[in-house]
Design a protein around this nucleic acid. Structure first.
Length: 504
DNA sequence: CATGTCACG
DNA sequence: ACGTACGTGACATGA
């Protein structure tokens, strides 16, 4: 679709797609490419592109391959794709809800993603290059500081060398181990060590700044495409088991926002002259979905009353009125709410809040006492998952859980957490995908000078001509809110700016 | 290519 | 008693 578009051939849509058929049938399967599907569903071993083009640095482009070889390969592609479709399509037709997810969500989204990818995002390259320089200077200073504390020079970016300095030379206490049994130097460990020793603090700052430099300020300007002057990510539609998208080369779904230095990177995502960026994000969408799925009366009431949900939770759990809720109580409630979405354990919550396991368990018990509908829903989800071997989103997208009845406790527990999380994360993914379809149709039909340029799980970013910004905000709010009809309103928050940071 | 780490929702 | 929050992608290191 994207290749043809370069030659001004705009496909109106696509009839079927074996990759998406396979993904909707079983999103947990790791690969949905034609070669793997041919082996799985047809028992056929196909010619792989790497067989005829080579791989890595030595790989040649398709036009350099002898016609008789290229011809056979291409003909097989067409043949196998049709045969796969003939096997996969009846399987989808046998499951009406999956067929609906395929036809009404994934296939329309495919064309929209192609369009978003081709549009790309404008970057202020100078800003990023300047920031790289500044970061480089600061990193050099931090290196010198680190050498002084360590009493020798070493590579700060090497966990192995860091382990030697920390735990052999300086004999700092080992707080946590990596999965391979090595003493961990991960962020939470360094935070704790930083309370008593100077070097960890230096490493922490160095880590976060070198991440910014190598992944963002150095790399992003390199990814700007010559012919468009923009970065063009590639959205993957058949990767995440829950139905989310993922974004690759560059990943535009993990651009920093949590720290001041990080947010500077967002300032480099800009609107062209006479345009603005509009960022529209769903407020608390997963918790709202939890309210809808569980039909818990307290949760429904709080959302319908438009209350601050973490504050409302704190008020219930700690037994105080809404305006008596203290900041630390709200923070705890927020952690509980996140924990619920993730299928929390008392251990996980206790670590998050830095409290004892007993206290964490008390919070959880109190929560379920106050929100019995949620407790019921969680229990029912686990039971249902164990019975049928999969869970479903609001729209019937399925996520299989092969480990849900595993004899291995750890695997089973992991599957249970996925069972809790997937319906919420997956329903949110279904909803924003449907919103994208509505928004794209509206912008196209009304010929408004605006286009979607990014999707970040619960957020759409639109590039809009200055004189239509207000219309675009109205439309985004209206269409995103109406993407699903739930027992509670879907709130959408919009921001506008010359860059992505301002638009937040 | 595995490992450890860290950026996002 | 078990060992622990869900989902991704990218980077540097080092074998």
């Amino acid at each position: 679709m994207s290749v043809l578009a370069r030659y001004d051939v705009e496909l109106k849509g696509i009839g079927f797609d074996t990759m998406l058929e396979s993904y909707v049938l079983n999103s947990v399967a790791s690969r949905h490419n034609m070669d793997d599907l041919a082996l799985k569903y047809l028992g056929l071993s196909t010619i792989h592109f790497e067989d005829i083009a080579g791989k890595g640095k030595k790989q040649v482009t398709f036009d350099k391959i002898d016609l008789d070889i290229a011809g056979e390969y291409a003909a097989e592609d067409a043949d196998i794709t049709l045969r796969l479709h003939q096997v996969l399509w009846p399987k989808l037709e046998a499951e009406p809800s999956l067929k609906k997810v395929f036809e009404e969500i994934e296939l329309p989204v495919l064309s929209i993603l192609s369009k978003i990818e081709r549009t790309g995002v404008l970057l202020n390259q100078t800003l990023l290059r300047d920031q790289s320089k500044t970061l480089g200077i600061r990193l050099k200073e931090l290196e010198q500081e680190a050498y002084e504390h360590a009493g020798e020079e070493f590579n700060l970016g090497s966990p192995k060398q860091l382990q030697r300095i920390f735990f052999e030379k300086l004999e700092l206490p080992i707080i946590k181990k990596t999965p391979k049994g090595q003493p961990s130097t991960a962020e939470p460990v360094l935070q704790e060590l930083a309370l008593d020793y100077p070097l960890p603090k230096v490493i922490l700052e160095h880590r976060s700044l070198s991440k910014l430099k190598s992944t963002y300020t150095d790399q992003l300007p390199e990814q700007v495409h010559d012919s468009t002057g923009r970065v063009h990510t590639s959205y993957h539609q058949a990767v995440a088991a829950t139905g989310r998208l993922s974004s690759q080369s560059p990943n535009l779904q993990n651009i920093p926002i949590r720290t001041i230095e990080g947010r500077r990177v967002r300032k480099a995502f800009i609107a062209p002259k006479n345009y603005k960026l509009v960022a529209a994000d769903y407020s608390q969408i997963e918790l709202r979905i939890m309210a809808h799925l569980s039909q818990d009366s307290g949760l429904l009431r709080a959302f319908n009353a438009g209350e601050d949900i973490h504050k409302a939770t704190a008020s219930e759990v700690f037994g105080v009125s809404l305006d008596e809720v203290r900041d630390d109580q709200r923070r705890s409630a927020k952690a509980i709410n996140f924990g619920l979405i993730y299928g929390m354990s008392a251990f996980g919550l206790s670590r998050q809040l830095n409290i004892s396991r007993g206290d964490a368990q008390e919070y959880i018990d109190l929560y379920f006492e106050r929100y019995p509908g949620v407790k019921k829903y969680m229990d029912k989800t686990r039971t249902l998952a164990a019975e049928q071997g999969y869970v479903e989103t609001l729209f019937g997208r399925r996520l299989y859980l092969p480990d849900i009845n595993a004899s291995n406790f750890q695997r089973r527990q992991g599957a249970e957490r996925t069972a809790i999380n997937a319906p919420m994360q997956g329903s949110a993914a279904d909803i924003i995908k449907q919103a994208m379809i509505k928004v794209d149709a509206w912008l196209t039909e009304s010929q408004i000078d605006a286009r979607v340029i990014m999707q970040v799980h619960d957020e759409l970013v639109v590039e809009a001509a200055e004189d239509v910004v207000d219309v675009v905000i109205d439309g985004l709010k209206r269409l995103m809110s109406a993407a699903a009809d739930l027992s509670i309103p879907l709130l959408v928050e919009c921001g506008v700016g010359d860059n992505w940071e301002e638009a937040h």
